[in-house]
Every structure is written in C-alpha cells, then in structure tokens.
Amino acid sequence: MAWFRKDKKPRSPRRERLEIPADAWEKCESCGYTDITEKFVRNLNVCPNCGFHRRIRAWDYANIFLDEGTAEETEVEIRSADPLGFPEYAQRLKKATANAGEGDAILTLTGQLGGSPISLGIMDFAFMGGSMGSVVGEKIARLGQRSLEKKHPLVIVCASGGARMQEGVLSLMQMAKASAMLSQLAERRVPYVSLLTNPTTGGVSASFAMLGDAIIAEPGAVVGFAGPRVIKQTIGQDLPEGFQTAEFLLEHGIVDIVVPRHELKPTVGRLLRHMSGKPAATGWLST
C-alpha cells in the first residue's frame, strides 16, 4: 500500500552477545528494564527507565555526599558483642561480617560536603537488615559527640528494619541513647539532617530518623513505625496503594522533602548552609 515505506530487514541474531559476562548487565527490580551495569552505576543506581531507586551500599552514599578524597572512617574498632548469649547470634554476626563488612550496620565518617566539614553516618541494610544494636547506638553517639565538639553538622542516612532483637532491651535503649545525643546537638544548635532510604522502620524510624532539623526521603522509600506486614495482620485488610512510601509521608506532613538521589548532595548542602549561617555555595552547586 505504502510504496515509499522502507522495507525492514530482519536482524540477524548476534551470537557474540553470549560472551559478555553476566554481571555486565543489571535489571531494574521495579520495571524489569535491563541495561549495562555501567549505565546503572553512572546513574547512581537509579533506574534510567522508571526512576526506581535501587538499594545501594553505605560507601556508595559516602561517595555521593562527600567531596572526593575527604572521607575518613571513624569508630572503626567497635564490634558487636553477644550480651544476652542469644541463640545463633554469634553465627549470624559472623555471617553478616563476612558478607557486609566489619562496620556493623552503620558506617561513620567525617569528611567535607561542598567544602564544609560534616559528620556522616550511613546505615547498611546489608548487615543484618540494618538492625540497630549497641554498636549502631554507640557509633551514632560518638559521631554525634564529634559533631558537638567541632560544631560540624550531622547527617545520617537511615536504612533499617528496626532494633536488633538479639540484643534484647539493650537494642531498645539505643533509641533513647541516640535521642539523648541529638537533644544535645539541638541545644547547641548543631544542624542535623536525616535521610530516609528504603526501608526505614521500627526503632530507627521511631528515634533519630524522625528527629532531623530537616527530614529528607528518597523517592519510593518505605518508611514507617510498623512494617506493612504487621499492619496488614493487625487490621486484617490490604493496605492502600503507596501506603508508607516517601510520597505518602510527604503528603501527610511527616517528611520535609522527597529528593532524588542525584540531587541529594546539593540539597543537603544548601540546607546545612542555611542552618549554619554560611553563605550560599558557588561553583560546585550546579543543580
């Protein structure tokens, strides 16, 4: 019919594709979009197709926030003990350390954000679901103390299923511990920004995560006190679409801003400058 249309030539299958190693490709967990790993990495592991924010590791956030070459890990000597002699805890710890590293469920650092010094805590969901035990509490307390002494703003990236059951009520007390530290920062007017990533629930959500002078959430992050499964069980019905997501929290007035990963650094930088009476940044702040 259309005599001017160009004929489509059937593509010949390219066999050499099979030789590409499996980890060269990444698939988005949300939309199924597949692309080369490098493209995901360059995009900070945000899906180029649907914008889904994939889970990234603590050091990835460190690289996002801190100026190149300024990061210095702190509190590296603290390790989880097994204060209750809880069944299987020692083995779980060993496994988590082998899989996720020695920093327990939080990486603490000092460094510079846009030329200004900050203290940065980043929870690592890969270590026992980012659960908060004595080590997480103590690392936050020490990091907070650094902030307090130097008047350097504190930023904490949250990712946690809650308190660590295996340390019993001592884990619960870490909520009070972190809050006691933050009350001191508040008293001395040291700015504190908390970033909520997927997921932030339980004892972490109900303590330092919700106490930021600014509370930021990554798009799509599930944040809440009780996990969706528990709520569903309690009320005996399905949860509404989008319940407990960052956007839901924004709508209900619980978080200040939902910020995509690419804009985290400039946004937090701007906030910290506002709150510490510093002039606007130039140059590095392009977005």
């Binding site: 933050l182 109900a206 330092f208 919700m210 809440g224 209900h252 619980i254």
Partner: peptide, 11 residues
Amino acid sequence: GQSEAIARNLL
C-alpha cells in the same frame, strides 16, 4: 506519624 511521636518523646 507514630514514629515521629515516639521519637519526639524520647528527645
């Protein structure tokens, strides 16, 4: 904001 309410009390 159950989380916030609890956290606020702790602080």
